[in-house]
Amino acid sequence: MSHHKLEVRKLRFSYPDGHVAVKDISFTIHHGEAVGIIGANGAGKSTLLMLLMGVLFPDVGEVLVGDVRVTKKTLPMIRQRLGMVFQDPDDQLFMPTVYDDVAFGPRNYKLDENEVESRVNMALELVGITHLKDRASYKLSGGEKRAASIASILSMQPDVLIMDEPTSALDPQARRRVIGLLKSFEHTKIITSHDLDMVLDTCKRIIIIKEGEIMADGAAAEILTNRVLLEDCGLEMPLSLQNCPLCGIVKA
């Protein structure tokens, strides 16, 4: 399924103030893969996501979705295939009700109102918030807002789901529900996060970024157990893999 492939070739991007946020990044993500992009603060993760989505354009290199290059011309098509869930759900939920928010994308693509309705219902069912359909978005709890913002992307039926810190600011149970949700999706997934336990749970492949460059790209089980590598990149091993501070059981 080459049309579901996401390819990044020799990407380089610098901000107007001269700061080079992404230096020479290349990778390919295949259909159905779940990839965690991790790195310390300021490593260039968010910039990379913006480059993938065509919010920013690289100085050098290119992003290919399937065989289509991300350019201003191809943006409408690209954005239908890549769905991005923002870190702060308040940025994404701007309509008066959850239903309208989830319908926002499909309506912009001028779908028939019946089709919009069936897509909205399907998306809400997928994330399990059908009962919140007519509620106002600003009144939802953090976990519900997150679920609604994911639904607002699912209704566009994207091939690739891109998520920026999907579990930030959630209580433990809401976080667990979101993890369960992410695992249930069969989409290609790209997740950036500092919650390495969540990344370990949801992603099979990890890409570590440091100062705009890829430091490692490989299986989650290998990378997330490599203490030296993680610490060198300003990270630490997932808590679930660390030694227990109470009973002293040594895990790694």
Binding site: V55, F86, D88, D91, F94, E113
Partner: peptide, 20 residues
């Protein structure tokens, strides 16, 4: 800026569609 980005990533091109 973030809101605008999230809107344009969902196909917003200036018309606020609130259903028929």
């Amino acid at each position: 800026q973030r809101i605008y980005q999230s809107m344009s990533l969902r196909g917003f091109e200036g018309e606020y569609n609130t259903g028929e």
